[in-house]
């Protein structure tokens, strides 16, 4: 997925004179191609994220299309106010690429983990939030981001948990992508790294539909309400807090337009306790496949849908 990001970036840098990459002294090896092909398009802004975002805003005001790269723990969270005031308030075309979203930096601890970034940004007007699940979605998301229509946050989970799409999907603004059709009582809606998990656990409940949700904001309320109406229950999956992310968005839409059971699988309201590998951290937070199966089963029990699903 990072290759897809780099390829799209280098192509844009070669062909679009507005494109410039800003990094806060991050991105080891990721920008080797860019630096080789377009060295003048690479700006290392030093370990100074607040200024970097302000500089990006100034460049965008003057007609550039800046891509601000950082770890998602720092961009957007550390610079939320700069994003709000300097970029979003003026609807400037600045792309924020937040790498290592979720618990990717498992062994580095809480400072480098990012499970609140989507919640923080969803409440900022004008911001588009994209969360690709694999390389194909990344390519499609980069095309949206580099169109230069306004502020975009590109949430990059480093862990590719399998390929979801065989070809770049066609993104329609705000619309979830159906990646596994099903007319059963249950639909799974997942984003980013959790789409692969959703695909792998979905076979436990025959007829389950799976959607990938690269567009976290805006999110097409009609499309989501329609999914809610076509299934007895919807479970959301994300490598992000259960507060304010995909689960929050779907629950808000369901509550307002199509009341249905909505189960939210994600990071519960706590920090990581221990050090360990990425796969260890997903187990600690119970977002690994086995834990997700157990969580969905418990949710279906609570919703008194277990029998319905067994009969499906």
């Amino acid at each position: 997925m990072r290759d897809a990001f780099s390829n799209a970036l280098v192509t844009a840098a070669r062909t679009d004179p507005r494109v410039v990459l800003l990094t806060g002294d991050h991105g080891y090896a990721l920008f080797d191609d860019l630096r080789r092909e377009c060295p003048d398009k690479y700006l290392n802004c030093g370990v100074a994220e607040q200024n970097m975002v302000g500089v990006a805003a100034g460049l965008a005001k003057a007609g550039f299309l800046p891509i601000v790269y950082g770890l998602s723990a720092f961009v957007p969270v550390r610079v939320l106010e700069q994003i709000k005031m300097d970029v979003c308030y003026e609807q400037l075309p600045v792309v924020f690429a937040g790498d290592g979203a979720g618990v990717v930096y498992s062994s580095l601890g809480t400072s480098h983990q990012s499970t609140e970034d989507v919640a923080a940004l969803r409440a900022v007007p004008e911001m588009t939030i994209l969360s690709p699940a694999d390389a194909a979605e990344m390519t499609a998301c980069m095309a949206v981001a580099l169109a230069g229509d306004g502020p975009v946050y590109l949430r990059m989970g480093k862990a590719d948990l399998g390929v979801v799409h065989s070809a770049p999907p066609v993104l329609v603004r705000g619309r979830p992508l159906l990646v596994k059709p099903g007319n059963g009582p249950l639909a799974l809606m997942a984003t980013g790294s959790m789409v692969g998990t959703a695909m792998s656990v979905s076979s436990r409940w025959p007829g389950t539909a799976v959607y990938s949700v690269p567009y976290l904001k805006p999110i097409d309320e009609v499309a989501v309400a329609d999914i809610c109406r076509r299934h007895r229950a919807v479970v959301t999956l994300e490598e992000h807090s259960v507060y304010g992310g995909l689960g929050g968005a779907v629950a808000e839409i369901a509550a307002a337009h199509a009341p249905t059971w909505v189960g939210r699988v994600g990071i519960d309201d706590r920090f990581s306790k221990y050090c360990g590998s990425y796969s260890y951290l997903t187990r600690e937070h119970r977002i690994d496949a086995d834990s997700v199966v157990a969580k969905i089963a418990a949710f279906l029990d609570r919703a008194r849908l277990t029998a319905t699903l067994a009969a499906a």
């Binding site: 805003a57 100034g58 003057a62 300097d86 308030y89």
Partner: peptide
Amino acid sequence: LEVSSGSLGHGLSVGVGLALAAHRR
């Protein structure tokens, strides 16, 4: 007016970005 200020410490960075844009062009 070039920047939205009031929250202090923002405007100079935006000005730096404007200066960088002019410098590069």
